[in-house]
């Protein structure tokens, strides 16, 4: 591959229970500062795969992971790796907007405060920069002290992106971040993703193949826990190498 791989995954397997295998031998190299879309039918393991990248899958009781995930050459499943450091480097935005029940300001400042920033002017600067980065500053700058729960769904989701940006991550994982939103909010977030890839590596899970073609540079197709095909988005959608990929993108199943 021409681009340097930021996240490199080898033989990744994951079981939710001894008999329930969700990922089977996944090998993939995710390039830096590009948008990678993960597509596939429901239950194919794409969300699970996303959660293995920042070890959020650890939270599921009874889960077992084998194989290797290297982030900038460092094995993230190594026991001496600090997950809080890892999750600061690799941020995540969820399907449902999940602002904390606090003010807009406190939501964005939550991450920096957690990581030890107490200085008020510095926090102010981080909050403004993150909200601007998530293209929501103009809408909320006059009500930073108001509850975040009063925002609309699309605004809440951009707030969550701002909250993720505030800890200055390297990678941004988005788990169907637009599937709960209306079309206008969705297009705003898609524009935002296009702008963010200048500075961040982005991995998104999406159900929506049009969305994948619109915003991603690379695309990976998952089926039944296996990575079937991975390549440039244009190539994957125009000239799929695998029959199953072709069936899926032409709408034969899923």
């Amino acid at each position: 591959m021409s681009e340097p791989a930021l996240l490199s995954v080898r033989n990744l397997e994951l079981w939710y229970a001894p008999a329930v295998q969700a990922l089977r031998g996944v090998n993939i190299d995710l390039p830096e500062r590009q948008v990678t879309a993960l597509i596939g039918p429901s239950g194919c393991g794409k969300s699970t795969f996303l959660k293995t990248l920042d070890r959020m899958c650890d939270l599921v009781p009874g889960v077992r992971v084998s194989g290797s995930v290297r982030y900038r050459g460092k094995e993230i499943y190594d026991p001496c790796v600090d997950v809080t450091w890892l999750r600061k480097q690799i941020g995540m935005v969820f399907q449902k907007p999940t602002p904390f029940p606090m003010s807009i300001y406190d939501n964005v400042a939550y991450g920096p405060r957690t990581h030890g920033v107490r200085d008020r002017p510095r926090l102010d600067a981080v909050v403004e920069r993150s909200l601007r980065g998530a293209a929501i500053w103009d809408e909320v700058k006059d009500r930073l002290k108001k509850s975040a729960l009063a925002l609309s769904g699309g605004q809440q989701q951009r707030l969550c992106i701002a909250r993720a940006l505030a800890v200055e991550p390297d990678v941004l994982l988005m788990d169907e971040a637009t599937s709960a939103l209306d079309p206008i909010s969705t297009s705003k977030i898609e524009e935002l993703i296009a702008a963010l890839k200048q500075r961040y590596t982005i991995v998104i899970v999406t159900h929506n193949m049009q969305q994948a073609t619109r915003i991603s540079d690379k695309c990976a197709f998952f089926l039944a826990g296996e990575l079937i095909e991975f390549g440039d988005t244009t190539q994957l959608f125009s000239l799929p190498r695998d029959k199953r990929t072709e069936d899926y993108i032409t709408g034969r199943f899923g």
């Binding site: 809080t84 999750r87 941020g91 999940t98 904390f100 029940p101 990581h115 909250r163 993720a164 800890v167």
Partner: peptide, 18 residues
């Protein structure tokens, strides 16, 4: 308390206690 709150906080790099 909805578990999503906790997941969001953990994803920002907070520890469980925090």
């Amino acid at each position: 308390v909805p578990p999503e709150y906790e997941a969001a906080s953990l994803a920002l790099g907070a520890t469980q206690i925090e």
